[in-house]
Every structure is written in C-alpha cells, then in structure tokens.
C-alpha cells in the first residue's frame, strides 16, 4: 500500500509539469484577451507525448497504464487550468477505443481535432437543453451520463447560441440535442462515468492546489505593517486551511483512482466522494485566494478569478455538488 507516486509515475508527472510550466503558464489566459484560450494549440504536442492515452489499455491503442497515471495527469491539467476540452479528447478516445472505432480513436489521441463537452443545464433548462463547452470549432461533442458516454457530431445539436461564459477563458454555447451519437458505449462496457467523475475530481484537486500556491506565494511577498502578510496568523491560517483541504482532496482522488484500478464495487462511491471533496475544496480555495490577495484579487489583472470560475465549471460538470451529494447517499457502505 502506497498512495504516493512511484518513480515512474513521478517521472510522468514531472514531464507534464515541465511541459505545462513552459507552454501553458496561467498568465496565458490573461494575455490571450477577452474570451477563450489558446490551449487547442497544445493538443498535438500533448498527443505526441502520449498524454491522452495514459489510461487506455495497450491492446486498445493506449499506453497501457492505469487510472492512477491518468489521475496524476489531470491533477496537473487542473493546476494549469488547461481547457476542459482535454476531457473531450481523453474520454472521447476511450469511447472510440471501446467501440472499436480505431481510426477515430487514433485521430483523437493525436490531438489533431477538438472535442467539446456537452453538459445538462439541469433545472435551468428542459431535458434536451445543454451547455456546450469549448465546442465552437469542435468536430465532436462528448456527453457523459450514468448510463454511459457518447461522441456526437456537433451538428447533432440544434439552436446553438453563443452565450457569455462566466469563465471567460472558455467558449460557452447553449444548444438542444436533436441528433444521434456517432459512437457510444454503455456503463456495462466501461466505467466511463465513474472515470469522468474521478478525473474531474483530480482536475479540481489541481485547481485547489493552484489557488493554494498562488495565495501562499503572494503572502510571502506582499508586505504590510512592515512584514510579509503571510507572517500574520490571520493570513497564515487561511493558507493552512487551503493546504489541509487540498491534501484531503488529493488523498481521496488517489484512493479513488486506485480503487478503480482494482475494479472494486466501491468505485462509484469513491469517484463520487472524490468529486464532492475536490469541487468543494476548489471553490473554497479560490474564494480564500481572492481574499488573501485583497483588492488585487478582485481585479482581472490578477489570475485569481480564473481559479474560482474554473472551480465552478468543474463542480457543475456531470452533476454539481448538490446532485453528487444526493447520489453518494444511494451507494452501499464501502469496504
């Protein structure tokens, strides 16, 4: 039993970290301008490095590693606020692989095309109404539900209307689902819904850690009353709380990934618990991060607001805290 990454796993983490630190510093979102992000330009490189295929079995065209490596990768994607379009590629390739659509799978793994995400608008809309994230120039749109997951061509959606995105680093549209999926797999074929929740939990862990580090770094350099504000317990304890919550979320994300790799019947419970703990943490850490930055944290000149808004997107995707809390009470007591 060991929840820490092995040397091989750490090497993967370090490679992704180095790549994203150089190619996708969070400053890119500010520099990019008003709406959207440049992340789709990274997809071919990330594809070439094999990062979309980590958790796919090698007999299905993947790297043949486990959910643990995928979890670690998505933690880093969250840390750098990489466009959630990356879920579309990784999960989309999984759908194609398990549906036997090898050509599509390889196209997705190479990162040459974009996959948007469709998410139910829940009580805010009718049953067939969705939000489309990062789908504007996407060939495909990913839809995940408890029953399974599917890739739809973009034109399976109608009445597509561009709306202002609260997370302005993402392109958001409203749409109605009126067509059929091109490729679909059921929950019996693969635990893709649990995997989606687990990976979104890992992503939210990264967002939480990013907000934590931003607050800690700032409180080391910002001085008031003649010393760094991090020397004051009022600030120090806020930072400590961010660290405590992040650690809890990371531990649960790791546990959830390992339980999934074991094929345990507790997989849905732990994946759901991971999404709950991590999304709650991401929103709270981002909020604390704004507070630690004071008035600067309230501006668009600081990067802080991106963490808050991305945390809310992560929470809303595939069922918000409210829905996940309902779901988790329906699972049997885990071992």
């Amino acid at each position: 039993m060991d929840l820490l990454p092995s040397d091989d796993q750490q090497q993967i983490v370090d490679t992704i970290k180095d790549f994203l630190r150089n190619e996708a510093p969070v400053d890119r979102l500010r520099e990019f301008g008003a709406i959207g992000n440049p992340d789709a330009l990274l997809w071919p490189q990330l594809g070439e490095l094999g990062f979309f295929a980590l958790g796919l079995p090698d007999d299905r065209g993947g790297v043949g590693l486990s959910a643990a490596e995928e979890m670690l990768a998505f933690q880093q994607f969250g840390y750098h606020l990489v466009s959630p379009g990356i879920f579309g590629l990784v999960l989309g390739a999984r759908i194609a692989a398990f549906a036997g659509e090898d050509a599509l799978r390889d196209e997705l793994l190479a990162g040459g095309i974009k996959v948007g995400l469709a998410n139910s608008r829940g009580a805010a809309g009718a049953a067939d109404e969705y939000h489309l994230f990062e789908a504007e120039e996407a060939a495909w749109v990913l839809l995940v539900s408890e029953e399974g997951a599917a890739l739809y061509p973009r034109d399976a959606f109608s009445e597509i209307v561009r709306v202002n995105s609260t997370d302005s680093a993402l392109v958001l549209e409203r749409a109605k689902l009126s067509g059929a999926p091109r490729v679909a797999i059921s929950a019996e074929t693969d635990n893709i819904h649990d995997r989606a929740l687990m990976l979104m939990g890992a992503y939210a862990v990264g967002v939480s850690e990013g907000a934590r580090d931003l607050a800690v770094d700032y409180s080391k350099i910002r001085e008031q009353f003649g010393k760094p504000i991090g020397a004051f317990q009022s600030i120090k304890h806020v930072c400590a709380d961010m660290a405590i919550r992040s650690e809890a979320a990371l531990c649960q994300a790791s546990f959830a990934a390992l339980v999934m790799d074991e094929g345990s019947p507790d997989t849905p419970f732990h994946a759901t618990a991971s999404k709950i703990v991590a999304c709650e943490t991401a929103v709270r850490n981002a909020a604390d991060c704004i507070q630690v930055h004071g008035a600067f944290g309230f501006t668009a000149e600081a990067n802080v607001h991106h963490y808050l808004k991305r945390a809310h997107v992560a929470d809303m995707m595939w069922g918000s805290l409210r829905e996940q809390r309902r779901r988790i009470l329906t699972f049997p007591t885990p071992a």
Partner: peptide
C-alpha cells in the same frame, strides 16, 4: 435525502470520511 439539510450534511460527511481515511493511508505512505 432529497433536499433536506440533514441529507446534504450526511452526504458531505460520507465523502469527507472517505477522504480522512485516504489521508491516513497517505500519512503511512
């Protein structure tokens, strides 16, 4: 379960207890 405050608090605690156990595993790790 549905919408009640107790349901929501119990659910959050169910998730948090899982995380607490995972944290102990991490301490040993």
């Amino acid at each position: 379960l549905d919408g009640d405050e107790f349901g929501s608090r119990l659910a959050q605690l169910r998730a948090d207890m899982a995380a607490a156990r995972a944290m102990t595993y991490m301490v040993v790790s």
